[in-house]
């Protein structure tokens, strides 16, 4: 199960926005080479193992384009 999902079509791009990569303490996210339908480059997960599921990217994202599987939810699922 991946920890970080990028909802590509909701994103407004790392070129103009880039807030997710700024607030990530572990540099989990990089830039995707594929445009979305609106013509923005969304981020992509490059280093998933480094992710601590702090949820910063999900909380700060202005476009609700990132979903992080939070640690508490994972425990409850087990």
């Amino acid at each position: 199960m991946p920890k970080v999902y990028i909802l590509r079509e909701a994103c407004k791009g790392v070129v103009d926005c880039d807030i997710c990569r700024f607030v990530c303490p572990k540099d989990v996210l990089g830039k995707s080479d594929m445009l979305n339908r609106k013509g923005y480059f969304p981020p992509e997960v490059v280093d998933e193992d480094a992710c601590t599921q702090c949820g910063n990217c999900m909380v700060y994202c202005p476009d609700m384009a990132i979903v992080v599987e939070m640690r508490k939810a994972k425990k409850a699922a087990r």
Binding site: V15, Y60, C61
Partner: peptide, 30 residues
């Protein structure tokens, strides 16, 4: 098929907010 947990509070017709890329108003919305 993953959906944002707060997406249920938005109208189904909303695909994206009208804000410019990087606008802080989206963070206020969330």
């Amino acid at each position: 098929s993953v959906e944002h947990p707060l997406r249920k509070y938005l109208r189904p017709s909303v695909e994206a907010t009208t804000f410019c890329p990087g606008c802080g108003d989206g963070t206020v919305l969330t």
